[in-house]
Simulated assay, not measured.
Amino acid sequence: MTEGNFVDYVKIYVSSGKGGKGSSHLHREKFIEKGGPDGGDGGRGGHVILKGNKGLWTLFHLKFARHIKAGHGGDGGSSRSTGADGEDKYIEVPLGTVVRDKETNEILFEITEHGEEKILVQGGKGGLGNWHFRSSTNQTPRYAQPGMPTEELDVILELKVLADVGLVGFPNAGKSTLLSVLTSAKPKIADYPFTTLKPNLGIVAYRDFQSFVIADIPGIIEGAAEGKGLGHYFLRHIERNSTLLFLVPADAEDIKKEYDILLDELRRYNPEMLDKDRLIVVSKADMLDDELKAEMKQELDIAFKGIPYMFISSVANQGLTELKDKLWQMLNIDTEQPENSHGL
Score class of each variant (00 low, 15 high):
residue 242 S to K: 15
residue 263 L to N: 07
residue 267 R to A: 06
residue 298 Q to M: 04
residue 237 H to M: 13
residue 261 I to E: 00
residue 287 M to W: 01
residue 299 E to Y: 11
residue 238 I to A: 10
residue 249 P to H: 14
residue 296 M to C: 03
residue 240 R to A: 14
residue 290 D to M: 06
residue 271 P to V: 13
residue 280 I to D: 03
residue 242 S to D: 13
residue 246 F to K: 10
residue 263 L to T: 10
residue 268 R to K: 10
residue 277 D to V: 01
residue 250 A to Y: 07
residue 260 D to T: 08
residue 239 E to D: 14
residue 255 I to K: 04
residue 238 I to V: 13
residue 251 D to I: 12
residue 260 D to K: 05
residue 256 K to T: 04
residue 250 A to S: 15
residue 266 L to H: 01
residue 243 T to Q: 05
residue 252 A to C: 13
residue 289 D to C: 00
residue 260 D to F: 07
residue 267 R to S: 02
residue 244 L to F: 14
residue 241 N to A: 15
residue 258 E to T: 06
residue 299 E to D: 12
residue 248 V to L: 03
residue 244 L to I: 15
residue 294 A to E: 08
residue 253 E to S: 07
residue 284 K to Q: 11
residue 275 D to C: 10
residue 293 K to T: 11
residue 249 P to D: 09
residue 284 K to A: 08
residue 269 Y to F: 15
residue 281 V to A: 11
residue 293 K to N: 04
residue 248 V to C: 12
residue 245 L to P: 07
residue 238 I to G: 04
residue 292 L to V: 13
residue 276 K to I: 01
residue 262 L to I: 00
residue 244 L to K: 05
residue 263 L to D: 07
residue 255 I to P: 09
residue 257 K to M: 00
residue 262 L to E: 01
residue 263 L to Q: 06
residue 245 L to V: 10
residue 246 F to Q: 06
residue 276 K to Y: 10
residue 240 R to G: 13
residue 264 D to R: 12
residue 271 P to D: 13
residue 257 K to Q: 06
residue 242 S to I: 08
residue 251 D to P: 03
residue 296 M to L: 15
residue 299 E to A: 13
residue 266 L to T: 02
residue 260 D to S: 02
residue 256 K to W: 01
residue 256 K to V: 09
residue 277 D to A: 09
residue 270 N to A: 07
residue 293 K to D: 02
residue 287 M to P: 01
residue 265 E to R: 08
residue 253 E to C: 04
residue 282 V to K: 02
residue 288 L to D: 05
residue 238 I to K: 06
residue 249 P to Q: 12
residue 285 A to R: 12
residue 262 L to H: 00
residue 266 L to K: 03
residue 278 R to G: 11
residue 243 T to R: 11
residue 244 L to R: 04
residue 279 L to V: 11
residue 288 L to C: 03
residue 278 R to L: 09
residue 260 D to V: 06
residue 294 A to G: 02
residue 240 R to K: 15
residue 266 L to W: 05
residue 270 N to Q: 01
residue 256 K to D: 03
residue 266 L to I: 01
residue 271 P to Y: 02
residue 285 A to M: 00
residue 253 E to N: 10
residue 271 P to N: 11
residue 253 E to Q: 14
residue 290 D to F: 02
residue 278 R to T: 09
residue 295 E to Y: 10
residue 240 R to I: 14
residue 264 D to F: 05
residue 266 L to D: 03
residue 285 A to C: 10
residue 243 T to I: 15
residue 276 K to V: 08
residue 270 N to Y: 08
residue 237 H to V: 09
residue 254 D to S: 14
residue 293 K to A: 12
residue 270 N to M: 08
residue 267 R to C: 00
residue 290 D to I: 12
residue 276 K to N: 06
residue 255 I to A: 06
residue 272 E to G: 06
residue 271 P to H: 00
residue 268 R to C: 10
